[in-house]
Amino acid sequence: MSLTDPLHALDARRSVPSKQLGEPGPDDATLLRMLASAVRVPDHGKLVPFRFIRIQGDARHALGEYLAARTLHLDPAAADAVIAKDRARFSHAPVIITVVARLTSGHKVPEQEQLLTAGSVCFALLQSAQALGFGAQWLTGWMAYDDAVAETLGLAANERIAGFIHIGTPLLDAPERERPDPAALLSDWAPHA
């Protein structure tokens, strides 16, 4: 595929596993450039129903220690391997951007649309990271849905974690994987006679 193909960036998108993301990560100016592209998503009502929390440096390891403790709290019989996995979840990529959905209930724009906007930001951030030569992976996991984790990260009652976007320099070329055939997913609607 030619680099002049206008769809090349979309067609070439790959997730790089967070364990395969190393230093360097984006510096402040580069990260802000990525975010400037990521916020250009459909936003019905101009609510800006999202915000960002950056996790980097020692904060990654502190969050990992918190997750390990939280795992033990939730399951005192958790296996050592499970605890170790949770401890290391945020220790690989040098920068993790938590995309937080800020949901306004009772607004004419349904909360579902607001959440979809935040999800679009996650995808756009993946695209902008790759466009600038970084690898990225969008992860959630149990911690994205845990109230105590949300409180630890400073989320308000109307906020939800849309995703943790792990960003860094790829330590390997992410392989292509099988993709669905769009023709098999497409149907045409016609009114009933």
Rank of each mutant, 00 (worst) to 15 (best):
A101N: 11
F90R: 08
L115G: 13
L103R: 07
A88W: 03
L132K: 00
G133I: 04
E111H: 00
G106A: 08
V100D: 03
V95Y: 05
V121L: 09
A93P: 10
V99G: 10
I96P: 01
P110N: 10
R89C: 11
R89T: 15
P94I: 12
A88M: 11
L103Y: 09
Q114M: 08
F123V: 04
R102S: 14
L125H: 10
A101R: 07
L125Q: 09
C122A: 06
S120C: 15
F134E: 02
I96Y: 00
L125G: 04
A101D: 12
R89M: 14
G106T: 05
A136G: 09
T98S: 12
K108M: 09
A88K: 13
A131S: 15
S128H: 03
S105K: 02
A129C: 03
S128Y: 03
G133K: 08
H107G: 06
Q130D: 02
F123D: 08
H107V: 04
S120K: 01
I96K: 00
A88R: 12
R102K: 13
R89L: 15
G106D: 13
R89Y: 11
L103T: 11
V100C: 05
G135P: 08
V109Y: 01
V95A: 14
P94T: 13
Q112V: 15
V100I: 14
C122H: 05
S105R: 08
L103C: 12
S91D: 15
S120P: 01
H92A: 15
Q130I: 01
L116Y: 12
F123K: 03
A124T: 02
P110E: 07
R89S: 15
A88E: 15
C122W: 03
A93R: 13
G133N: 09
C122V: 06
P110G: 06
G133A: 12
V99F: 07
L115Y: 14
A101V: 07
Q114H: 11
V100Q: 04
A129N: 05
I96F: 01
E111K: 02
L126F: 00
H107T: 03
L115P: 01
R102G: 05
A118C: 11
L115D: 12
S91V: 07
E111V: 13
A88L: 12
P94D: 14
S120M: 12
L115F: 14
L116S: 08
C122F: 02
H107M: 05
L116V: 11
Q127A: 05
P110T: 04
P110M: 04
C122Y: 05
V95T: 15
S91Y: 05
V109W: 00
G133F: 03
V95W: 01
A124L: 01
F134H: 05
F90T: 10
L126G: 02
E113C: 06
L126R: 02
S105P: 00
I97H: 06
P94E: 13
E113F: 08
A129K: 00
A93I: 06
A129D: 03
L126N: 06
H107K: 11
Q112C: 09
H107S: 14
L115I: 07
F134W: 04
L132C: 04
A88V: 06
V100A: 07
F123Q: 15
T98R: 07
A118V: 04
S105C: 00
A131W: 06
L125K: 10
L115H: 10
L103E: 13
F90W: 08
Q114D: 10
E111G: 04
A118Q: 09
P110Q: 02
L116E: 12
T98G: 11
Q130P: 07
